[in-house]
Design a binder for these strands. Sequence first.
DNA 1: TCAAATTAGATAACATGTTAAATTTATGAC
DNA 2: GTCATAAATTTAACATGTTATCTAATTTGA
Lengths: 170, 170
Amino acid sequence: MTDDKTTGASSPAATRLRLRHFSKSLPMSLLRARESVMRHFRKSLREFGVTEQQWRVLRALSTKPQMEVAELARATFLLGPSLSRILVDLDQRGLILREPDPADLRRWMISLSASGSALIDNVTPVSEAIYRQISQRFGEDKLGQLQDLLAELEDAMAGIGNNGPGAPAD
Amino acid sequence: MTDDKTTGASSPAATRLRLRHFSKSLPMSLLRARESVMRHFRKSLREFGVTEQQWRVLRALSTKPQMEVAELARATFLLGPSLSRILVDLDQRGLILREPDPADLRRWMISLSASGSALIDNVTPVSEAIYRQISQRFGEDKLGQLQDLLAELEDAMAGIGNNGPGAPAD
DNA sequence: TCAAATTAGATAACATGTTAAATTTATGAC
DNA sequence: GTCATAAATTTAACATGTTATCTAATTTGA
């Protein structure tokens, strides 16, 4: 359908560099794959009244008793401003606790509240059920392969634009 | 660093279902992988004055002489409202052309303008150079494997929540 | 022919993504 | 101790994501 490779309107492949077919570009493939998975999770999360991002935050908090905001941002892959707004919301809804770090008043220590933990406990079986479906349908082995490749890709990308390790690209 | 597997604060694995480690969840892996790739492309796109989403639109338009808005939305994986705003912007900047479909006045036929095509021609070599770097660093074979797995995952996911083929979940 | 249902696209409203700037607190040089 | 600088977080401003609603054009069926 969208496989029309010869309609270049005005640019023959010989004279201009030709981009790989759009739908096959790596970023689009990753985007589509992620969306195909998230579609199933989002539906359940919505029933529990949390967005995907809010769930990421709660989920990350469930792995440690307390986390700083910056640490949480790294873990959830959210930027500071987004996270900041989400924390206000989760706090107002009583799902998390924020206490100042006595050693550094710039820092907040974030943790799950009892009701936040309860929410996690409620969502977990549903989430795991979906994950099991994916495993069965896609195959445990392939899932493992995919995870390995994704991790390797991340590693490979980490070393490309940087002059030194961890050096910001700009 | 975030590999702390034993800090379950209050919930032993025996009593509560335990979620797979957050950072290893498939959606997070896909998100991180995509971000690690896009980081490199975004930097170049920005120098050319287009966002990632705008580039997706131009890129999709470069595969066909004309596209309808809905078709473009599917191809770029953008939702209608986002695309609508982006098209207004690209039109005002003269990068695309919008002409009404005489056969159905609800439809617009979108196409690249000359300056839109020129922009593509300018970005293409940069984009391809980045892609080559990725290929070299990550490996052609692995890249192919990854693309295959992603496509298979999409296929697998497509058949999960649906009662019939293409039936909306609700 | 005409009213109801459908369809394509746009607009509205609010959440999040993203970059820059502001705020508050720490740290270090003098 | 005081001032400049840095760091952690928030606020601001604007683009995009997302769902719902709206408008206009088309189709359907009596």
